[in-house]
Design a protein around this nucleic acid. Sequence first.
DNA 1: GATTTTCATTTGTCAGACATTTAATTGTCT
DNA 2: AGACAATTAAATGTCTGACAAATGAAAATC
Lengths: 250, 250
Amino acid sequence: MKIDPNNPADLSAQIAAAIRDAIIAGRLIVDERLPSEAELAENFEVSRPTVREALKRLAAQSLIRTQRGAFGGAFVNRLSFEDAYNQHITTSTLLLGMNGVSFDTACEARFALERACAALSAERRSADHLATMRAEALRQAQPGLSDEAFCASDVAFHRALVDGAGNPVMSYQLAGAVEAMQPLMNMITFTARDRAEIVRLHSGIADAAEARDGDAVAHILTELEAYTKTLAQSVFAARAQASGTDSTAR
Amino acid sequence: MKIDPNNPADLSAQIAAAIRDAIIAGRLIVDERLPSEAELAENFEVSRPTVREALKRLAAQSLIRTQRGAFGGAFVNRLSFEDAYNQHITTSTLLLGMNGVSFDTACEARFALERACAALSAERRSADHLATMRAEALRQAQPGLSDEAFCASDVAFHRALVDGAGNPVMSYQLAGAVEAMQPLMNMITFTARDRAEIVRLHSGIADAAEARDGDAVAHILTELEAYTKTLAQSVFAARAQASGTDSTAR
DNA sequence: GATTTTCATTTGTCAGACATTTAATTGTCT
DNA sequence: AGACAATTAAATGTCTGACAAATGAAAATC
């Protein structure tokens, strides 16, 4: 593994890329210990701080973990599903938030992907998944719930539906789509009437899942998508009108 | 923004988390300049190398970019779709590779999600998307193609199909599912007969997309999923038998 | 044999310095 | 006055050297 000192890119970035490539290509395997920082510095012909910056880059992606003390060092990390979830959610959230993605676009993608889980989830969901869906739907019907808590419960409900498919890869992919929507959903204030309708649809999904009717689940998800979009539209319309009558309009 | 020097976690990790949270929460907005490293070091009451390690962590996630020179510094980065794609693909690839995810599980997730794009893509695909699909199917029919080139073309074909849906969020999500499969697909050696069948199915998908028949696209994708699984199964069966007769069996 | 102590190794952090890049500023010439 | 060149200040990139803290192995002790 060599780096080019004449490359305009940071040395630490080059070193990180070299090690990352080695991990992805399988030349470094899980739990393998990397050379110590001093040895890496010697190998790459850079100073120790530079090596450290490279290692921190890798640590930020959960590619390595470090341990202090004798026989410590940097080890190739087994990327856990949880770590992957969190990274995916962070990236997805920022992607939506920073690129002016419209609510409709995000919503369309999210429900399209979730419908992809409907058939599998209806077929395979355990009693546990069903119980979680019922419990969350019940919670959502409680009157004193804050909008944030309502949204959080909404995420938990859909998560249970997705997890019901019993495919961890799908759960991982959907985590990004579902959770990244939350900041957008939090912009909506749900009236009691809105909540009642959502709970009705959620209950319908739970019923269909109980009956192992994947088509019905998908169908209700489509209804929920449409309802969510109209809700958002009315919120945005009201906001546009409000900003049109005050001085902060642009 | 403060950090806890008694926290067992690395100071640089704490600082990175504090800044990351500020970005996600919108307290730091796109293209805003962070204080210089020296100022950050003073604010957080740590040394400059520690601040730098924190900034490198954020740079690894494309959350900031740095610029040298006067009026340079660290700026909050607008996470581009391309950056997000690449991070997502890296994470997905490692997740599949390091956690013993079975070919069937990954394959099921990938095709389920891709079917979610079928209807939208059939409805919205441009002439360009269709042309790309046709071109890639044609390339795949060429005799001299290496297995790697065949797989790469396969990815390009499906990418065109997904992009046809005209939803960048969906393209982003699917990128992880489709591209992360490539290392697994590369383990398969495609015979001429296999390739012919895949090309036939790809052509069918292109035909259905041309006819704007989403159901047909989804149906052929299901066929392709089944065919891919049987291909993989025969490869793994052959490999298992081979390893059963040699000394490296475990 | 079990427990405690010592010790070498390795990462975490710091201080200070110099090199390099970059754009605003200043100076100079036409 | 305007265009171009030199200067300069500010910032990141990198290096050296040092010490602190953690940690497991080995040695010493009971």
